[in-house]
């Protein structure tokens, strides 16, 4: 009785809070909800913050900042900035890396999903995952001291002597390559190695998600294993594989350290892949800490915005494509 009176004597709000906190479930649910909101708002926050920080540069340069048709100049001393050379560097290195990585990754994915005996799959999968786990700087270090002189320079010389001599192609393949091998081509080759595991892993999963009946039907019709893979499985999983490729593209565009170490970091270089250049990520990595003026920093952040938007779009498209395949195969 005394106890009850004590409760009654407590103020109303106190009891209300006590009721609200009963079992602690509401706190728990609120925590879950808040954490989820936090994750969602982070993406928005990153976008807004970068957009806000790049105001200075956006107002100063407008759309000409990313236009390919404006004469480019990147001159911190004169406060003149134009991002096209680095955007071009990102695009060309990523596209070359994709062209080289697609056949490799598809081949590996096919091998892992269709051919490899069951006992060999886990170790092979581990190895592909290891390839993705090696830190980017280690790739860069290996790139500078081993990969560039031993692999990239000889190939670059051959390209300069063959494709570089053809009149129409000189713009893109004109040599000579720097002796060190620091070039867009070197960056593209390193990127190829780095994005192969990404594309492989996703397209392997896509292949594994295809119903067994598809394979059996094709084989029963007398198709060889390769014909089954090429004419049945790949068309079936095409949108997923496309998603994997786009995912790889996003990875390649955003890759920073290894590229910064092997691309040579200059704003010149014209359009030739054998010359050193910049990518969007590498120009930020290389110049931001030593930005000389507010406008310089702001311009670099605007490049960051371009990079962010590009990868965001690529990722959204890729996820949608992969999700589409998984959804379709699950529905059946």
């Amino acid at each position: 009785m005394a106890n009850l009176k004590a409760i009654k004597r407590r103020p109303r709000w106190y009891n209300k809070i006590g009721y609200w906190l009963q079992h602690g479930d509401r706190i728990w649910k609120a925590l879950l909800f808040l954490s989820s909101l936090l994750i969602v708002s982070l993406v928005v926050w990153i976008a807004w913050r970068l957009w806000y920080q790049s105001t200075l540069s956006r107002h100063q340069f407008g759309w000409a900042f990313i236009s390919p048709w404006v004469p480019s100049s990147w001159n911190p001393a004169l406060d003149k900035f134009q991002a096209w050379p680095s955007i071009y560097g990102s695009l060309i290195t990523s596209v070359i890396a994709l062209i080289l990585a697609i056949p490799f990754s598809l081949g590996i994915a096919i091998f892992l999903a269709e051919l490899a005996p069951a006992y060999a799959r886990p170790p092979l999968n581990y190895m592909i995952e290891m390839l993705a786990a090696v830190p980017s700087v280690v790739y860069g270090l290996w790139g500078i001291y081993v990969f560039l002189p031993l692999i990239v320079v000889p190939i670059g010389e051959v390209i300069a002597k063959t494709a570089g001599q053809i009149p129409g192609l000189t713009t893109f393949f004109g040599g000579p390559m720097p002796v060190s091998g620091l070039s867009r081509f070197g960056a593209a080759l390193i990127l190829t190695i780095m994005i192969t595991p990404t594309i492989t892993a996703v397209s392997r999963d896509v292949l594994l998600a295809i119903p067994q009946s598809q394979r059996e039907a094709s084989l029963a019709l007398g198709a060889t294993q390769w014909e089954t893979i090429w004419n049945v499985l790949i068309p079936y999983g095409l949108s997923g594989i496309l998603g994997a490729v786009i995912l790889g593209f996003g990875r390649a565009i955003g890759e920073t350290m290894a590229v910064t170490m092997v691309i040579g970091n200059t704003t010149g270089g014209g359009y030739s892949i054998l010359k050193p250049g910049y990518t969007m990520a590498s120009i930020i990595a290389n110049e931001f800490a030593e930005a000389v003026s507010d406008l310089h920093a702001s311009a670099l952040i605007e490049i960051g915005v371009v990079l962010f938007v590009t990868t965001l779009l690529l990722n959204a498209i890729a996820r949608w494509l992969v999700w589409n395949v998984n959804h379709r195969t699950m529905g059946r």
């Binding site: 989820s36 993406v43 920073t256 990595a285």
Partner: peptide, 28 residues
Amino acid sequence: LLSDTVRFSTDLLAGVPSIVIGLFGYAV
């Protein structure tokens, strides 16, 4: 709706280049 959004944002967050996250950290 929120859980789908969270999954999607998680994927997007995983895809944001690390250098951009660095810029964000600098700004914030």
